[in-house]
Design a protein around this nucleic acid. Structure first.
Length: 263
DNA sequence: CCGTAACCCTGCGTGC
DNA sequence: TGCACGCAGGGTTACG
């Protein structure tokens, strides 16, 4: 379940590893994993970017490889299980294996000038640190009758948040994820946006959360797991007030919160 | 517009 | 032990 901090960590490690190298070919072992929207040709990786939960490897003539790890995807030179390798991205110096147990992950190649026009990415809302959110976040919340949880998971509203950081942000902001978006006061909206930015930044600094599957492109786990306040702590006591945490499905996703600390 | 559920997958934990 | 079942979930799609 790589979300923005985990994808950012992969991008950082990937940059160090393959920048300025030639991407020589993409080998595919499962027909659904690699999608060639244009015929592939070798190109030099001049930049590696992230947008939301997408990784983008950019070439000098608008070549783009777009990678989405979905739930269990990894980019690694030493896969833990051979049978889960769905594709391999070859460079002059490395063989980056795309290991993906559940086969939800995708690698897409296309030629397109602008990152924001790429498939999948075109629909994304702003990055959490985009200053535009200081103005629009509250307004968008006001327009929506979704629950806060649904709103945060909605990639068209704000990009990069998944189940872990949605619950963590709500806890940190002291806001119940079950509330309707349009019920938030302006001060609560600011608090939530601040919490999102704080939680994500901290998780990036700690190189991601390794709950079950996540490792970076160097095979290293993240260090954020022990800092989670609610995610994965079903039937546990709130570490702040000792109340038993509440769990409920919202939008098909397990949602955990504290009815004492969150209002 | 919104929520719910199914779908895509497969390892893992639980209960019988 | 071994089987059946439910769960995990990002994104998409269908339906009420």
């Amino acid at each position: 379940m790589p979300e923005l901090p985990e994808v950012e960590t992969v991008v950082q490690t990937l940059r160090e590893k393959i920048t300025k190298q030639e991407i020589t070919r993409i080998e595919s072992y499962k027909p659904e994993t690699v999608i060639l929207l244009k015929p592939f040709h070798p190109f030099k990786a001049i930049a590696i970017e992230r947008r939301g939960k997408y990784i983008i490897i950019c070439g000098p003539h608008n070549e783009k490889i777009i990678i989405h790890l979905r739930m269990t995807g990894r980019l690694t030179e030493s896969p833990s299980q051979e049978k889960f390798i769905r594709a391999t991205i070859h460079t002059t110096k490395h063989a980056l294996h795309f290991e993906d147990m559940r086969r939800f992950g995708r690698i897409t190649f296309t030629i397109n000038k602008k990152i924001d026009d790429l498939p999948g990415i075109i629909k994304l809302g702003p990055e959490p640190w985009n200053p535009i959110l200081d103005k629009t976040f509250f307004l968008e919340l006001q327009k929506s009758s979704q629950t806060i949880k649904s709103f945060l998971l909605d990639q068209t509203k704000i990009a990069g948040i998944g189940n872990i950081y949605a619950d963590e942000s709500c806890f940190h902001a002291g806001i119940l994820p079950t509330r309707k978006s349009n019920s938030l006061q302006k001060t609560e909206a600011s608090k939530l946006l601040y919490a999102i930015r704080y939680i994500l930044k901290k998780a990036i600094y700690l190189r991601g959360t390794s709950f079950a599957h996540f490792i970076d492109a160097n095979g290293k786990k993240g260090n954020n797991l022990e800092f989670l306040a609610v995610y994965g702590r079903k039937k546990s006591a709130c570490f702040k007030c000792k109340t038993l945490l509440t769990h409920q499905k919202l939008q098909g996703r397990t949602t955990i919160y504290c009815t004492t600390c969150q209002k």
